[in-house]
Design a protein around this nucleic acid. Sequence first.
DNA 1: TATGAATGAGTCTTCATTCAT
DNA 2: AATGAATGAAGACTCATTCAT
Lengths: 198, 198, 198, 198
Amino acid sequence: MGDKSARKKQLIIEKAREVFCKRGYKDVTMKDIVDACGISRGGLYLYFDSTRKLFLEVLESEQDSEDIFSGKISENSTAAEILVLFLVEQKKEILRKRNSLLKAIYEFYFEEKPDIKEDSYRKDFDSAVSVLQRVIELGAASGELVCDKPEEAAVNIMVMLEGLKVMSLTMGVSAELIDRQFIYILSTLGVEDDSDAQ
Amino acid sequence: MGDKSARKKQLIIEKAREVFCKRGYKDVTMKDIVDACGISRGGLYLYFDSTRKLFLEVLESEQDSEDIFSGKISENSTAAEILVLFLVEQKKEILRKRNSLLKAIYEFYFEEKPDIKEDSYRKDFDSAVSVLQRVIELGAASGELVCDKPEEAAVNIMVMLEGLKVMSLTMGVSAELIDRQFIYILSTLGVEDDSDAQ
Amino acid sequence: MGDKSARKKQLIIEKAREVFCKRGYKDVTMKDIVDACGISRGGLYLYFDSTRKLFLEVLESEQDSEDIFSGKISENSTAAEILVLFLVEQKKEILRKRNSLLKAIYEFYFEEKPDIKEDSYRKDFDSAVSVLQRVIELGAASGELVCDKPEEAAVNIMVMLEGLKVMSLTMGVSAELIDRQFIYILSTLGVEDDSDAQ
Amino acid sequence: MGDKSARKKQLIIEKAREVFCKRGYKDVTMKDIVDACGISRGGLYLYFDSTRKLFLEVLESEQDSEDIFSGKISENSTAAEILVLFLVEQKKEILRKRNSLLKAIYEFYFEEKPDIKEDSYRKDFDSAVSVLQRVIELGAASGELVCDKPEEAAVNIMVMLEGLKVMSLTMGVSAELIDRQFIYILSTLGVEDDSDAQ
DNA sequence: TATGAATGAGTCTTCATTCAT
DNA sequence: AATGAATGAAGACTCATTCAT
C-alpha cells in the first residue's frame, strides 16, 4: 500500500497547505486539518502526529515546486535583466494574499529552536544570496552595473526583501512602495530604470 | 485608592511585559500573567479583560519610555554622525535577546485587522522615515553625503531594519552581518566608514 | 443614622425592583444591583447579603403599595361593576411589560421551599379569593348574577388569572384573548357584557 | 457507529431529563449532565453544545412519547366522558412531583425570545384547544352539555389548567382543589358530577 | 489502515463574598 | 457606614491525543 499511502499523505499535505495559508501556523489545530482533508482524526495521526511535523512537510513540498530564478531567464539575458526578473517575481510573492504561506512561515520559525531555524530558513536565504552575488559580479564585470561589494549588495537585496515581506504582514505595503524601493536599490547599483516594472 | 490601583495596574503591565518578552504574544495566557504577577485570576480581570488589551497597554507604556533618536545627539553632530548613532541604537535593539518584545510585536500585528495595523504600526515607521529623510537631506545639502532620492533612501533604511529585525527571529543575525549591512548602506550614501561600529 | 440608613435601604429596594423587573430573579447578580444603585459592593452587603433577601423586601414593599381592589369602587357600585373593575385592573397588570415583576416572582417562588411558598404566595391568593367570593355572594343575593358555588367561582377566577399571567410569559397573550376570557367567565355567572372592556 | 452514537445520545437525553426534572432549567450546568451521565466533559460536547440545545431535544423526545388524549377513549365515549378523561389525565400531570419537567419548561420558556415561544409553546396549546372545542361542540349538539361559546369554553379550560400548573409550582395545589375546580368547570357546562374523580 | 468516540487537562470568564482602609 | 480591591471556586468550552473496533 506504499503507493496509496503516499498519495494520501500528499493529499493531506496539500489540504494542510491551504489551511496554513488561510490561518497561519499557530492557530491551526488538528481538527482544522482533519476537516479540510475529510479524513478521520485517527487517520491523520497515522501520518502526522503534530501540526509541526505536518508544516515541516508542507515546507518541504514547497521547495520542490518553487525555483527562485524562474525558467524565464534566457541564455543571453543581461545581469540587469535577470535582477529585474527576480525582483518582479519577488514582488508578486509579496503582494500575493491568497495562497501565501508567509504568515505561517514567520509564525513557525519564530517558534523553532535557533539551531533548526539557522539550518533550514537560512539555507534558502544564503543560496539566494549566492546567486544574486554571482549575477551582480557578472554585471559588474560586463560594466552593466557598478558595485564594488557584490556580496554585501546581494545580502542587502535579500534583507530588503525580508523587510518588505514582513511589512506586508504588519503595516501593509503597496505595489508602488515596492516598485520605488526596487528602483532605488537598482539605482544604487548604477542601473537606471526606464520601464514601469510590472 | 485610584493611586494604589494605578500602581497595581502599572505593576501588571511591567510583569506582563516580561512575560510577552519571554513567550511572544500568541502563547501568553491570562494564567501566565496571573502567575507572573502573583495575583488571583479574578484580580487580573479587574484591570484587563484580555491579553490583547494588556498587550496594547504594554505597547503604549513602551512608547512613553523610548525615543528613537536618543539624547546622545549633540548640537553640532553631523548628518553622518546622527545616522551612525541611529544605526548603532538599532543594532543594539536587534541583537537584544532578553527583554525584547520583538517577537510578541510581530505575532500581535500579524493578528490585528489591517486598518488597525496601518494606523498604529505604520505611524511609527512613517515618523522614523520622516526624521531619517530630513537627516539625509541635511547631509546632502552640506555635502557630507550623496543622495538624490532622500525619501527612498530613508524608506530603504527602515525596510532594511525591518528585514534585519525579522531575520533576527527567524534565521538569526550576527553583529557582524548587521555591521556589514550598515556599512554597505552608508557607502551607497557616499559615507565611507573608518571606525568599527558598536 | 437610623433615618439616613432607612432611606438608603429604601433606595436600594426601589432600584433593585427595577432590576428584577428587567431581568427576572434568577439572572440578577449582586453586581447588577450595585450598578443600578450606584453604591459599592461592600455597601450593599451592609443592607442585604443576598439577592434573595433583597427580593423578599422588594415583594414586601410591593404589597404596601398595591391594593387589589383599587379606590375606584364607590359606595354604591354593584357586584358586577366591582367584578369588572377588578378584572380590568388585572388585565392591565397582565399586559404590562415594563415595570412588571411577574417573571421575577415566578422564578423566585419556583425556587423557594414549599412551606415558605404556601405561606406567602398563597396568602395573597386566598385573600383575593375571599374578597371575590364575598362580591359574588352579594351579587347572587341581589339577583345581579347567578352562582350557586361562590367559593369555587372565586377560586376559578383566580386560577384563570394565574393561567393568563403565566401564559403572558410563555406563549404571550393578546388583549383580545383576555377580554374574551373575561366575558366568558362573566357569562357563566349570568352577567352579560354590553361594553367594550378596556 | 451511527447506531451506537445514537444510543448514547438517547442515553444523554434521558439522563438529562432526570436532571431537568430535579433542578429545573436555569440551574442545570453541563457538569450536572456530565455527572448524571457518567461521561467526560468533552464527551458531552460531542453531542450537545449547550444545555439549551439539550433541553430542546428533551422536549422533542417528550412530545413523541406523550399524546394528550390517551388511547383510553373508546369509540362510543360521550363528550362528557372524554372531557373527564382528559381532565383526570391533566390532574395526574399537575400533581406529579417526581419526573415532572414542569418547572424546567416554565423556566425555559421564560427565557426564550417571544417569536420562538409563540411558535412552539403556543402550538401545543392551540391544538389542545381545537380538540377540546370539537368535543364540546359534539357534546352540545348531542344535548349532553350546554355551551353557546365552545371556543371560549375550550380556551377557558386550557387557561385554567395553565393556572393550576403554575400554582402547583408556586403555592402548591391539592388534589381536592383540582377536583373542585374541575367539577365547577363541568358544572358551568351543564355537566353535573356524580363520581369522585381520580 | 482507518474510524470517530472518548478523555481530561487547560483556558477563559464570572460571581458571591470578604476585608483592609 | 462605606468603599472597592481582591479572592477563589465554579462553569463553559476547546483541543491534542488515545483506543476499541
